[in-house]
């Protein structure tokens, strides 16, 4: 089975600094891939290239077998959900309108939208009674759940999450990690998640892509990375994170 997203020789520089060196990567359908690495390693850049917020300097990105071009990014974006760290919710719209914004814009039937909203509330454990609140009236965890509902509203083939849990306190974060894992499993969702937390990566990811300085350092499970580190950096990164957890 072919990969849903396929990068070939994709690179990106900001001014003179290379954010991403020429990279080949494939993201398989139905799997959760975690991009991990220190700040500035290029993991967010990679995500933004896939959603078309950035254009690559060189190389091609294929989605579902077709190369991404500016001409059909709008159509592509509707097949991809995107969740960012602080939610990126629209402050002037209620939770309900945030979630249904695109469905309304695309003039989906009202009954279908209401049914989808109920499903999403159940899926993300968001109380339906809070749907008419504005983002400022919601807690951080609730905001991320709404952001996730908004990303899932059109049943996207691909879900991109850029440090979605980064700004949450540990208890909320743990609860959401658990929910995310269930959601991905139930939806058989193809997902790419960016994090800098190795425990989260290991918990949520079928596969981990460890990056450093704009390059892929190693791809595999946490076991692979630990047992057969591809470089000294991989060992160092894993040890540093383990030390954090254990002390």
């Amino acid at each position: 089975m072919s990969a849903l997203v396929q990068l070939r020789g994709v690179s990106k520089t900001y001014g003179s600094a290379a954010a991403l060196h020429p990279t080949d990567l494939a993201f398989e359908r139905g799997k959760t891939t975690v991009l991990i690495g220190p700040s500035g390693c290029g993991k967010s850049t990679l995500l933004r290239l896939i959603i078309g917020l950035l254009e690559p300097d060189a190389g091609t990105i294929q989605f579902d077998g077709a190369p991404i071009t500016p001409a059909h990014t709008a159509e592509l974006r509707r097949r991809v959900g995107y969740v960012i760290q602080d939610g990126g919710l629209f402050p002037h719209l209620t939770a309900r309108k945030n979630v249904l914004l695109m469905s309304t814009h695309l003039k989906r039937p009202v009954a279908e939208m209401d049914q989808r909203l109920a499903e999403l509330c159940a899926l993300t454990r968001f109380p339906e009674t809070a749907l008419d609140r504005y983002p400022l009236e919601l807690s951080g965890g609730q905001r991320q759940r709404i952001s996730l509902m908004r990303a899932l509203a059109l049943s996207p083939e691909l879900l991109l999450l850029d440090e979605p849990l980064g700004a949450l306190d540990p208890l909320v974060r743990a609860a959401l990690q658990k929910d995310l894992k269930e959601i991905f499993a139930r939806l058989k969702q193809t997902a790419i998640l960016v994090t800098h937390d190795l425990a989260e990566a290991a918990y949520l990811g079928d596969e981990i892509v460890l990056m450093t300085e704009g390059r892929v350092a190693q791809i595999g499970t946490l076991e692979d990375l630990r047992a057969k580190p591809a470089s000294a950096f991989v060992t160092e990164f894993i040890n540093a994170q383990r030390a954090l957890v254990l002390t």
Partner: peptide, 16 residues
């Protein structure tokens, strides 16, 4: 910026 990028990433056309 996150609000802007969310609007773009959702797939809304520039006018919308």
């Amino acid at each position: 910026q996150p609000v802007r990028e969310s609007a773009i990433a959702l797939g809304l056309e520039p006018a919308a």
